[in-house]
Design a binder for these strands. Structure first.
Length: 569
RNA sequence: UGACCCAUGGUGUAAUGGUAACACAUCUGGUUUUGGUCCAGACGUUUAAGGUUCGAAUCCUUAUGGGUCAACCA
């Protein structure tokens, strides 16, 4: 067994994991022969924004469950509100799901596919005396709904005749009434302790074109009147959503019970949505960050969006592993963003080619190295995967190292360079610092070192030194823009603010982006957009789409763990 | 003056009436030409009170704490 095979990071779903509560329910259903043992889930995004890591959790859940139990998962756009929804979002959502590694095959649906059927069902409700047209404005309806602790009062239009309701509803459909003048309401129970059962609105007038149905409709069904029936039409067995829909479940069931005669029913289950420390997850807040230019768009690498994470350098595998690790439950939770970072490090460690990059260069002149000599050193690409081969890195008389790899007056445990100290330049020679130069401000500007020609890497040399530094040859190095990203918020819980005059934006991390120019080894010239690297001793970086033929741009995905920095905090 | 959901280490998630465990985080040590990786170890957990039971994290009751519900949003 080689080093790679015994890694614990192997996809968690290969391990014997205990079941989450949904898997328990599903296995019970299968055992009982419910739905003939079939499992059919769906992922139902509203196309009014970009997907974020919380959606990724849901995608992994729904598609993952289907896969695990030999079932299927549909993609269904919940597009019942044309005033907010756009084609642009449909496209980005599909791209993100595919990128995450999931496939809905030929099962792409839209709630708007069902508008005709939904309308017929509404008519049935009217004919059965279970729905009525209300002529009141929304403010009045809202007032009559009461509050959770007090019953509501019935609308004066509640007892209209079936014929009158039918006529009015038809006229609503024909476009005879302006927006907001009438709605269709289910007649349920204004005294219910559940607000959603107090004669919910099921159709509203909206003279707005729809991205799929064009101008065919000027009335649109509400979410509650759409979702369960859509699940029914698609043969969904387990309809999984987040906790805030728990109170909607009685309504979900009510519509099906009053509309459907067959025995089959989809059933709704709820799980806790993902919250991540040091970030916000609501679409509204994310949109605010984009609109008010706190970030550079939905795919800004600091955003918790799927497109942002992709651009940041995250891999689909790392996100899937993350989703597996956080589990599924009904308890409110805040996951430490460190777990996400662990997941991406874990994967990138296995696959990212190692290269040398010096981000804060300090010139080192090797005084006894022959002028003009260049040695092409053969360095491994990834010690985790020796079979992958090696790369050539040129070495010469003048190199750059990191400024913080030298201290004028270093403490004993500093295993790097200082006056009179020795280190190994990784893959090259052991050098000794003989002298250094400072500018008028006291900044170190140059180091003068000697090298030991007997210590060339791979020559069988026995000499050991405590420290090993990365470096680049000054004349061969490639300049690149490097964007050092940090957490978007400085507070673990961005919504926690000192007083009401502030909001989550007051917790924004002012240093979440630093742009510098780094010196990178020449092999990087071949890099393509989104290629991922480990800058040795620093972190994982990937090529940003802003890169041009003449200028590479790198994003820092995540720094390497740094026990030295931690120790010195 | 309500209904519903939830409560296990610092953070998450298991244990399905029978030894409270796994991951991350934290801390030690070992290996290392990355202060990375890897390896070994340590730390630390059932909200409370009653009840049922030979036996309760698990079942029941009450309390406490947290959350959700009052868009013609989803």
């Amino acid at each position: 067994m080689n080093n790679n095979e015994k890694k614990t990071g192997a996809s968690p779903d290969e391990k014997n994991k205990s079941l989450n509560f949904l898997e328990t329910i599903i296995e019970e259903d299968i055992k009982n022969g419910k739905h003939s043992g079939k499992v059919h889930t769906r992922f139902p995004p509203e196309p009014n924004g970009y997907l974020h890591i919380g959606h990724a959790k849901s995608i992994c859940l729904n598609f993952g469950l289907a896969k695990k139990y030999n079932g299927q998962c549909n993609l269904r756009f919940d597009d019942t509100n044309p005033s907010k929804e756009e084609e642009e979002y449909v496209d980005s959502i599909m791209e993100d799901i595919k990128w995450l590694g999931f496939d809905w095959e030929d099962r792409l649906f839209y709630a708007s596919d069902y508008f005709d059927q939904l309308f017929e069902w509404a008519v049935k409700l009217v004919k059965d005396g279970k729905a009525y047209v209300d002529d009141q404005p929304s403010e009045l309806i809202s007032e009559q709904k009461g509050v959770p602790t007090r019953p509501g009062t019935e609308s004066p239009f509640r007892s209209r005749s079936m014929e009158e309701n039918l006529g009015l509803f038809e006229r609503m459909k024909k476009g005879e009434f302006p927006n907001g003048t009438r709605v269709l309401r289910a007649k349920i129970d204004m005294n219910s302790p559940n607000m959603h059962m107090r004669d919910p609105v099921i159709y509203r007038i909206m003279h707005t074109g729809h991205h799929r149905t064009g101008n065919k409709w000027c009335i649109y069904p509400m979410y509650d009147f759409t979702h369960g029936q859509s699940d029914y039409l698609e043969g969904i067995t387990h309809s999984i959503c987040t906790l805030e829909f728990v109170v909607h479940r009685p309504l979900y069931d009510w519509f099906l019970d009053n509309l459907i005669d067959t025995e089959y029913r989809p059933r709704q289950y709820e799980f806790a949505r993902l919250n991540l420390s040091y970030t916000v997850m609501s679409k509204r807040k994310l949109l605010e960050l984009v609109n008010e230019k706190y970030v550079n768009g939905w795919d800004d690498p600091r955003m918790p969006t799927v497109s942002g994470l992709r651009r940041r350098g995250y891999t689909p595998e790392s996100i899937r592993n993350f989703a597996d690790r956080i589990g599924i439950a009904k308890r409110e939770n805040v996951i430490d963003v460190g777990l996400l970072e662990f997941s991406v490090r874990e994967h990138l460690n296995k696959i990212a080619p190692r290269i040398f990059a010096v981000l804060n260069p300090l010139k080192v002149i090797i005084t006894n190295y022959p002028e003009g000599q260049v040695e092409d050193l053969d360095l491994e690409i990834n010690p985790e995967d020796p079979n992958i081969g090696s790369r050539i890195v040129p070495f010469s008389k003048e190199v750059y190292i990191e400024q913080n790899d030298f201290m004028e007056d270093p403490p004993r445990k500093f295993f790097r360079l200082g006056p009179g100290r020795e280190v190994r330049l990784k893959g090259a020679y052991i050098i000794k610092c003989e002298d250094y130069k400072k500018d008028e401000n006291g900044n170190i500007t140059e180091l003068y070192c000697t090298y030991d020609p007997e210590t060339k890497s791979g020559s069988g040399t026995q000499r050991k030194v405590k420290g090993t530094l990365h470096w680049v040859s000054a004349e061969h190095a490639v300049d690149a823009e490097v964007r050092i990203y940090d957490r978007l918020f400085s507070n673990e819980f961005p919504d926690k603010v000192e007083d009401d005059s502030k909001d989550f934006k007051s917790n924004l991390n002012q240093d979440s982006l630093k742009v510098i120019t780094g010196k990178i080894e020449p092999s990087v010239k071949e890099a393509k957009v989104l290629d991922k690297f480990q800058f040795q001793r620093l972190g994982y970086y990937c090529v940003d789409p802003d890169s041009t033929e003449n200028k590479l741009v790198f994003n820092r995905t995540v720094p390497l763990r740094d026990s030295w920095a931690k120790q010195n905090k």
